[in-house]
Amino acid sequence: MDRHAQRSTENAAAFDWAHDDVFGRIASRYDLLCDLFSLGIHRLWKRRVARRIAEERWTRLLDGATGTGDIILRLVAHESTADRQIVASDVSAGMLGIAQRRLGSNADRVRLECLDAERMPSVADGSVDAYSISLALKICNRTQVLNEAFRVLAPGGRLIVLEASNIPWKPLQATYLAYMSACMPLLGWIATGGDASAYRYLLHGIREFPTAEGLAEELSAHGFVDVAFERQSLGIVAIHTARKPRTA
C-alpha cells in the first residue's frame, strides 16, 4: 500500500491535507459551515470545552488544529489564563491567518505556529503541561496525533479533546446521521461555493469516528490514565479528558 492510500485508511474522514488543502480553501467560510451544520450549537460546545481547559492546572498549553481560533478566543476570555502561555497551532496557514485577525488585541497573549498535529518535531518532548484539540481528530490520523500529544506532554500533563461522538439511543443517532446526510451536501455546497470535498470529508468523519467509549479505550491504549468523557447535546459530541502518567 502506498503512503497516500495508507494515510487515507488511518483517519475517520479518509482525509490527507497534503493532497487536498480543502480547509485552506474554505478558511474564510469555515465558521459559517460550523453554524450551518450544527445549527449554531457548536458555540455552546466550544464555550464548554474552553471553560474546561481554563479550569485545568497548566502553565503552558499547546492547542492542536486551532483552525480559525474559536477555542482560543474563548480561552483568553477567562481571567485564569492571563498569566499562562498558550501556543495555538494548525497545519493551515489560511486558518491561522484568520485566527490572528480574530484575536485582535489579544494577539500578544497567544503564539501561533504552523504545525502538523501528526508530526511536530519542533516541539520538544515533555514541553507542555496541557494539550487540547477540538473537532479535528476526525480528519486526522488520530493514532499519530495522540502519539504526539503523549510525547509533548510533561508527566502528569492533561489532555482535553472535543470531538464527534455518538448518541447512545440508536434510533436518535440514526435520525441525526440521516439529517446530516441530507442537509450537509446542500448546506456545504452553498457555504463553500460548490467545493464538495469539504462536506464529504466532514460527513465521512462523523460517520466513521469511534463512539465515546471507543475513543476512551484508544486513549487508554496510548498510555493515558484518568480517562473520562462527558457527552454534550445528547452525544453529538463529547469532551474527553485524560492525563499522562507522572511516572513511566
Rank of each mutant, 00 (worst) to 15 (best):
I133A: 01
R119A: 15
K138H: 14
R119T: 15
I139D: 10
V152W: 10
M120Q: 14
Y179T: 09
V152E: 09
M184T: 10
M180F: 01
L162D: 00
G193H: 04
Q173T: 03
D125K: 04
L172S: 07
S122G: 08
T175V: 15
A149S: 13
L177S: 00
Y176A: 02
N147R: 14
N141T: 07
M184E: 03
C140T: 04
M184K: 09
N147P: 04
G193F: 00
R119F: 15
A136R: 05
T192Y: 02
T192W: 05
Y131D: 06
A117N: 07
S127Q: 12
A130W: 13
G126T: 08
L115F: 15
P185I: 11
L187Q: 10
W169N: 04
K170Y: 14
G193I: 03
L112Y: 07
I190P: 02
E148Q: 14
V161E: 06
L162F: 03
W169D: 05
A182I: 02
G126N: 12
S132W: 08
S181N: 12
R109M: 12
I190M: 13
D125L: 08
L172P: 03
L159I: 11
L186T: 14
E148I: 09
V110I: 11
C183I: 15
A130V: 08
P171N: 02
L177A: 00
A191E: 00
S165W: 11
E148F: 12
